[in-house]
Design a protein around this nucleic acid. Sequence first.
DNA 1: TCTGACCTGCGA
DNA 2: TCGCAGGTCAGA
Length: 268
Amino acid sequence: MPELPEVETVARQIRRGYLNRTIRKVDAKPSIIFQNVPAPEFAQRLAGKRLRTVNRYGKFLYWELEDAVPVFHLGMSGIFLKDASRSLYPQHIHLRFQFEDGVNLYFQDVRKFGKIYLYDRPPAFDNLGPDPTDENFTLNTFRKLLNLKTMNVKTFLMDQKQIAGIGNIYANEALFDSRIHPLRPVNEIRAGEAEHLFRSIRKILAAAIENFGTSYTAYRTVEGETGENQNFLKVYQRFGQPCPRCGTAIEKIVLNSRSTFFCPVCQV
DNA sequence: TCTGACCTGCGA
DNA sequence: TCGCAGGTCAGA
């Protein structure tokens, strides 16, 4: 699934439905998605613990329980579901959390690119750049990040070491909104353009969160519903369709093995 | 900095 | 059968 808006949607829904509940039991299928502890140990260490906080940094979701902090990265196809009967791929459910009062939460990941870690305390995420929804992420910080970089701007936006949370959909959309060509070298972006891009990133991500994320393929909310933001995308997956601003056909190129969509007239 | 590898499902 | 899909790594 999942870029920042999808993970944020999931975090909010888990917070709303599960916060302060105690996990009675965890069923964990052995799987390559478990990174630093095997599935049985993961299950054993969470049993009996109360869910105190649900947090997100970039594309990472993490929970705080008494002395255990599970960290989830949803990869390309990881989703949480409260009702297993809403799963289209029950054979790919890796985790079931049984909370008190018979409430369940399932983790499904068809492609198994997701990753699950277990720590004693919240990680620092110090290998990641700033989260663009954080209030400490200012235009000034953004400008400093852009300086001295020679990579193209789309690669920059998707590089989690630079900024944490933006993936292929929202990199395309933010560049369209700010009228910047995806291949522009970062250090050649002018001050006014940098400010426009900064505002576009915040605006695009906020709107996507409002719309419960983008369901292009696998992503579903915890309720099992599709998001709604796919109805508002301007360029992503719109190759050949008219640019909503100027009517020119949207172009598609491959950049770092990822499809990249832009308007060849509006974006310079 | 680029490419392939990791996985599975789907549609052309 | 092939190419492609909201991601990230290791290794050339």
